[in-house]
Design a protein around this nucleic acid. Structure first.
Lengths: 231, 231
DNA sequence: AAAATAGTGTCTTTCAGACAGTATACA
DNA sequence: TGTATACTGTCTGAAAGACACTATTTT
C-alpha cells in the first residue's frame, strides 16, 4: 500500500482529446408548494428512450460555462426564473443510467414560490407532481402515479431528503413562500416537507426566537382571525 | 416564461460525438487523525502546472466505471485501502479551475483510521497535513503552511465542513478510530474535528444513550486508570 | 351569539453544560 | 501516600411537547 500518486499526474499530461469522455448534463429538481403539498415540476419525454415517461428538466453543460451557470441558464430557459434558491444536490454517474451513451448528470435543487409552481402547472408536456411517501413518488393532480425516466425517481427522493434535512436549521423554507406570509403558512410548509405534524406554540417560539422573521404590522385578509405578517 | 422543455430533449438526440466534452476526474479527500489532529493526505505535484504545489490524489473516470467505482479504485491504487468510509462530497466545475483544459471533478470524502494515516506519512511525494483554522489550511508536520494546487484548498475546506456537520448525528467518527477505542479517544476525535472542547459527562451520556457503542469488558493498557472499551 | 382560527401562558419532560465527587490505576 | 485519569451524581437552565386558555375576526 501507500502507492499514492504516481500515475495520475502522469496521465493528466496526456493530450486530453485522446480519451473518450462522458457527456455532462445538469438536471434540475424544481420543488415548490402546490395545492398544499410539496411538488415537483416534471417534463414528459416525447423522444426515443423512455418516451411518455416523466423527466426532470435538464440540458448539456457548455464548454465555457460553470456548472452553477449551466443550472442558472436552465432555470431561466425552462422556468423563466432568474431568482430562486439554487444549490447543487448530487452527481449521478452510473454507467448505464442512460441507455444511449455515458451521461453523468449534476443534479441541482431549485426552490420555487407557490405562484411560480401554479403558473407552470397548466402546460401539456409540463406537470406539477406531488411527492408522496418515503420514496417521494411523483403523483399527478388526479392521483395517478407518474412513471419517471432513467434514475430520476431516485434523484427526486434525494432532493426531497435534502430539503427535509435542511429545512429546520436553514432559511430555505422562505424560498417556498411569498415575501409576506403568516406563521401558519410557514408551519404548513414545514409540515408538508417533513410529512409530519408540528406543535404550534413550539413552532412559533422557535421561529420567532431565531430572529429571522420581521413583523410587518399588516394583517391577512380572509375569513376568520388575522395573523401578523412576517418577512 | 414556462417555456419548460423544448430543446433539451431535442439536443439529446444529436450524435454525442459532435460535442466537445469536459474531462471528468475524481479527487479524493483522505482525512484521518494524525498526531492528535485532523489531517489530510496530499501529493506533491511534479509536473507542469503548479509543480511543487500540493494536490489531492485523483484520476480520470473510465468510460465503463461509475463514479463510486472510480473513487474506490483510486482509494485502492493510491492508499492501498479497500475498506474505508467513502462518500461523494461535491462536484467542482468552474471553467478555469485547471488551466490546461476543462476539467470537472467529483470530489469524494474518504475517512481513514489513524494507523493508515501514519503508514502513508513517510513517503516523499506524499505528506500528511494538519487542517487548521476556518479555511482548513493545510500545515505540514513542522508547522509550515502548504500551498495547494488548483481549487484544492477550497475542496479541503468543504470536506472538513461536511465532516463537522455530520459527526454528531452519524457514525462517521468510528471510521477514524480502530475497532476498539476508549470514550476519551472518541471525544478527542470529536474535539479535533469540531475544533472545540466538549463537556465530558454530557459527551459520555450522549454516546452511550445512542446505543451504537458496545462495551467489551476489556481495559486499556497504559499509565493511569483504564477505561472500558467500546464498539 | 356561535364558529373558527390567531395567539399566549404554563406545566412537564428531556437534555446539555457545569461542577464536584468517587474509584482505580501507577509512582 | 500522592497523582492522574476514568467514571458518576446532581444541580441548573434551555428548549420542546402538551394542553388549556384568551383574543379577534366573520357569519
Amino acid at each position: 500500500m501507500t502507492d499514492i500518486s504516481g500515475d495520475a499526474a502522469f496521465l493528466k499530461e496526456y493530450d486530453p482529446t485522446a480519451y473518450d469522455r462522458p457527456s455532462i448534463t445538469v438536471d434540475l429538481v424544481l420543488l415548490g408548494m402546490h395545492r398544499g403539498r410539496l411538488s415537483a415540476l416534471l417534463v414528459r419525454r416525447d423522444q426515443a428512450p423512455q418516451a411518455g415517461y416523466w423527466a426532470l428538466p435538464g440540458g448539456f453543460v457548455a464548454m465555457d460555462e460553470s456548472l452553477d451557470a449551466a443550472a442558472a441558464r436552465l432555470l431561466h430557459d425552462k422556468a423563466g426564473l432568474d431568482e430562486a434558491h439554487l444549490e447543487q444536490l448530487y452527481t449521478f454517474g452510473a454507467v448505464d443510467r442512460d441507455p444511449r451513451m455515458r451521461v453523468i448528470t449534476i443534479a441541482y435543487l431549485a426552490l420555487l414560490r407557490e405562484d411560480r409552481m401554479a403558473a407552470a402547472a397548466g402546460g401539456g408536456r409540463v406537470t406539477v407532481a406531488a411527492l408522496e411517501g418515503e420514496a417521494a413518488e411523483a403523483v399527478s393532480e388526479d392521483g395517478k402515479p407518474l412513471p419517471l425516466a432513467f434514475d430520476h425517481q431516485h434523484i427526486l427522493a434525494l432532493a426531497r431528503d435534502r430539503l427535509r434535512g435542511k429545512i429546520d436549521y436553514s432559511d430555505i423554507a422562505f424560498a417556498l413562500l411569498p415575501d409576506r406570509f403568516t406563521l401558519r403558512a410557514l408551519q404548513d410548509v414545514h409540515e408538508a416537507v417533513l410529512g409530519t405534524t408540528l406543535n404550534k406554540p413550539a413552532f412559533r417560539r422557535r421561529m420567532l426566537d431565531r430572529g429571522r422573521l420581521v413583523a410587518t404590522g399588516m394583517r391577512e385578509e380572509d375569513a376568520s382571525h388575522r395573523p401578523a405578517e412576517l418577512f
